[in-house]
Structure formats: structure tokens, C-alpha cells
Simulated scan of single mutants.
Amino acid sequence: MVLFLATLSLAALALGGPAFAAPDARLAIEIWKSPTCGCCQKWADYLTSNGFSVSARNTTQGMLNRIKRQAGIEPKLASCHTGLIEGYTIEGHVPADDIKRLLAERPDAVGLSVPDMPLGSPGMEQPDGKSEPYDVLLVKKDGSTEIFAKH
């Protein structure tokens, strides 16, 4: 995991900046996403409005899939973007309060995942207010998961 984060930091430097260039490093999150995915940018904006300093990195789908694999996110846990914060992976449309709780509790885990793209999750809000229930999963280092939060 340390080698993976170091590799991402070097990649970020090659792309024009430090991996975590925010003044408040506690809430600095780096997001890897497709440049054409609107909901990814909506999630990044949502995090910004909830106290995070966001560094969004556009990348190819192939590189994004490699980042997910190296970060411990199996295809069944994947969504459209991957975030990194304080050694944790944040996969998909995870609510800000769940990320803050993860950072406060510091479990021995890979991170959090909201697989797929559930309607009504942050960044996936619908104009008509339609939403569907979804779980935020805690991804353990052995690849297993448990429910971290229900929404």
C-alpha cells in the first residue's frame, strides 16, 4: 500500500503538482476520475462543500482500473472514481460524514466503497429527488467487506 501511494504521488508530481497540496492535510483527498464523467465532478464539488480540500486527477479508464486494483478495490466493489485520503481508499459516491467517521475511527482497513452509482447518493442526486437505498461498505485488507453505514 505504501508503495502504491508513493507511486500515485510520483504520478501526481509528473502531472503537475503534489499529491496532497491542500493547506488542511487532514481533509485533503485526491480523486482519480474520468474527464468525461459529470457525476465524479459533482461528488468532488460535494466534498469541497463539506470541508474537504479536493485534488481531482483526470485519467484514462485503463489507469483508473489499475489504481483501483492496486488500492484493493475488486471489480464487484468498483464505481466510477477512486479517492485517496490518509492511506485509505474511497471508492464511489461515499458521503462526506462517512469519510470523516472513517478518519476518526481509523480501522485497519483498505477504505470505504459504494459500489455502482446509486441514485440519490452524493453526486448522483436526481432533479425529481428520486433515490434508492444503498450501503457504504468497509473494505477490509483481506478483501472482505462489512456494512459501515446504511443510507
Score class of each variant (00 low, 15 high):
Ala25Val: 07
Thr7Asp: 14
Cys37Glu: 01
Ala12Cys: 13
Thr7Gln: 15
Ala6Ser: 15
Ala25His: 07
Cys39Ser: 10
Gly38His: 08
Cys40Glu: 00
Ala19Thr: 05
Lys33Asn: 01
Trp32Asn: 03
Ile31Lys: 01
Ala28Lys: 04
Ser9Arg: 12
Ala21His: 11
Ala11Trp: 14
Ser34Asp: 02
Leu5Trp: 14
Ser34His: 05
Trp32His: 09
Gly38Cys: 02
Cys39Glu: 05
Ala28Phe: 00
Ile29Asn: 02
Leu8Met: 15
Cys40Ile: 00
Ile29Leu: 02
Pro18Asp: 14
Arg26Ile: 08
Ala6His: 15
Leu10His: 11
Lys42Pro: 09
Gly16Val: 09
Ile29Thr: 01
Gly16Ala: 12
Ala28Ser: 15
Asp24Ile: 03
Gly16Thr: 07
Gly17Cys: 11
Ile31Val: 08
Ser34Phe: 03
Phe4Asp: 07
Ala28Pro: 01
Leu27Asp: 07
Lys33Met: 05
Ala21Asn: 14
Leu13Cys: 10
Leu5Asp: 11
Ala21Gly: 15
Trp43Tyr: 06
Asp24Ser: 07
Ser34Leu: 07
Asp24Gly: 07
Leu5Asn: 13
Leu5Tyr: 14
Cys40His: 01
Gly38Trp: 04
Arg26Met: 04
Trp43Ser: 09
Pro18His: 10
Trp32Glu: 01
Cys40Val: 00
Ile29His: 03
Ser34Lys: 02
Ala21Gln: 14
Leu13His: 12
Gln41Gly: 07
Thr7Cys: 12
Ala12Gly: 08
Cys40Pro: 01
Pro18Leu: 12
Pro23Ser: 15
Leu8Trp: 03
Cys39His: 05
Leu13Met: 12
Ile31Ser: 02
Ile29Glu: 10
Ala25Trp: 04
Pro35Asp: 10
Ala21Phe: 07
Gly17Asn: 12
Trp32Thr: 00
